[in-house]
């Protein structure tokens, strides 16, 4: 794992600290001329991102998630932070009528969104669906019991959570303007003295020059949809957002949805829920009254 934090001066009073976490390029923009301070805040940001990544990674055998996923139905006692994340996932499951489900990760075993043309076996999907369903697990804080074969995956909220946490950590120590950007999911505390942050959203084309430029001052912004993760069969494009009821990708969804909300976690959730609406994504976001940008 690359544990470098690099610092670059972007303007007289603007430093950018960059590092890699959660398989994404991460950048923290800090409105200060003080290089030492910027580097210190950059290291603090990276340490926090790596901490969350290590704690909740599905791939690390010592992570909290691996401990729960390998518990074979036994009750696992979790710490306060994990408890509040599970609590949050519970509320999201209820609010979304069951369509947002952190146990849906096992469905990925059937789908490989690598641009290939292979559709999975329906029997495989049905077999996996029997291992999905937030209502099948027992959550009596601080103990969680996850039936054998099921898996928790905080991948859908982990990066957004890390963005909000890092912004929280930095604002407790620094009064200037900050923008935290982890692979396109971002949060800011306020606009710099020179005007709002300008954020570019990549269009779902291969041409990276074609960007949509958005002004952004404070709150969170997140994008759902990945232009490189899809399957296309008989002209039908299947994106990587899966419907837990069918085990199939949602059809008719925009290629990407960007939402601005009070925090990055909230924006990310709204963007994911919008994707799950398929054709009705824009309508759903309109009803929610949030700023959004859908690209089809």
């Amino acid at each position: 794992m690359n544990r470098d934090v690099s610092l670059e001066r972007r303007a007289v009073k603007l430093h950018a600290a960059s590092f890699t976490a959660m398989s994404s390029p991460c950048e923290v923009l800090i409105e200060t001329a003080d290089e030492a301070l910027a580097l210190q805040l950059g290291h603090l940001s990276a340490a926090e991102a790596w901490r969350i990544e290590t704690k909740y990674s599905r791939y690390l055998p010592d992570s909290v998630i691996s401990r729960i996923n390998n518990s074979h139905g036994a009750a696992v006692e979790v710490d306060t932070e994990t408890a509040s994340l599970i609590g949050f996932a519970t509320q999201c499951y209820e609010l979304s009528g069951g369509s947002f489900d952190v146990t849906s990760g096992v469905l990925r075993k059937a789908w490989r969104f690598d641009g290939s043309k292979a559709l999975p076996d329906q029997s495989h999907i049905e077999q996996l669906l029997s291992r999905v369903g937030f209502d099948k697990l027992d959550w009596s804080p601080p103990h969680i019991s996850l039936p054998t074969g099921m898996e928790l995956d905080f991948g859908g909220i982990g990066k957004e959570y890390a963005v909000d946490r890092v912004l929280g950590l930095l604002t407790a120590r620094f009064e200037g303007a900050l923008l935290v950007n982890f692979g396109g999911d971002l949060a800011a505390n306020k606009a710099p003295a020179t005007g709002p942050w300008c954020v570019g959203v990549e269009r779902p084309d291969t041409d990276k020059q074609a960007r949509m430029l958005l002004d952004f001052s404070r709150g969170g912004m997140a994008t759902s949809g990945d232009t490189h993760r899809y399957i296309e069969i008989d002209g039908q494009r299947y994106g990587h957002i899966l419907d837990v009821r069918t085990g199939w990708p949602v059809t008719g969804a925009p290629r990407s949805v960007t939402v601005a909300a009070g925090s990055c976690v909230e924006a990310g959730l709204l963007a994911t829920l919008a994707m799950l609406q398929g054709e009705q994504a824009e309508g759903f976001l309109g009803e929610q009254g949030v700023q959004h940008w859908c690209l089809r």
Partner: peptide
């Protein structure tokens, strides 16, 4: 509901 849930999560953190 989402705002409340997010708020609870981030206040804890």
């Amino acid at each position: 509901g989402l705002m409340a849930a997010t708020c609870a999560l981030l206040v804890q953190s």
